[in-house]
């Protein structure tokens, strides 16, 4: 099975780009592949704990938790981007990695496919 590295800068609400990235990751995991998801910029907000679900907005956290349970999914957020947005370690999901951008490049190194989805 392959390894996919997906990067995104898009926020969890306000654009559907991150929804698509998560859907793609979920499909890959369900097929038995491994996925690294790298989140920079506004996308780092997805790493926050306890996101509330309103039906008018996307709620990606539930899917993210299921993907963590698969054991084939890693999600990392850019620490500087997160800190800039007030998303500190104490409000970050336990399974979520906080790293600098070199984590993403190292993930690209070992990936079979690299995809960037969405910008801001």
């Amino acid at each position: 099975m392959g390894r996919l590295t997906i990067g995104s800068f898009s926020s969890p609400a306000g654009t559907m780009s991150l929804d698509f990235a998560i859907k793609l990751a979920e499909a890959a995991i369900n097929k038995g592949h491994a996925v690294d998801l790298w989140l920079s910029g506004n996308a780092t907000v997805l790493g926050n704990k306890d996101q509330k679900h309103y039906k008018d907005y996307s709620h990606l956290q539930k899917t993210v938790k299921l993907m963590f349970n698969s054991g084939r999914f890693r999600m990392a957020i850019c620490e500087a981007c997160a800190e800039t947005r007030g998303c500190h370690k104490d409000i970050t999901m336990d399974e979520c990695i906080r790293a600098s951008m070199d984590w993403h490049l190292a993930s690209c190194f070992s990936a079979d496919r690299v995809i960037m989805i969405g910008d801001n």
Partner: peptide
């Protein structure tokens, strides 16, 4: 630019 430090993970 962060490629300069990616080696720590490789």
């Amino acid at each position: 630019i962060s490629s300069q430090t990616a080696e720590i993970y490789l």
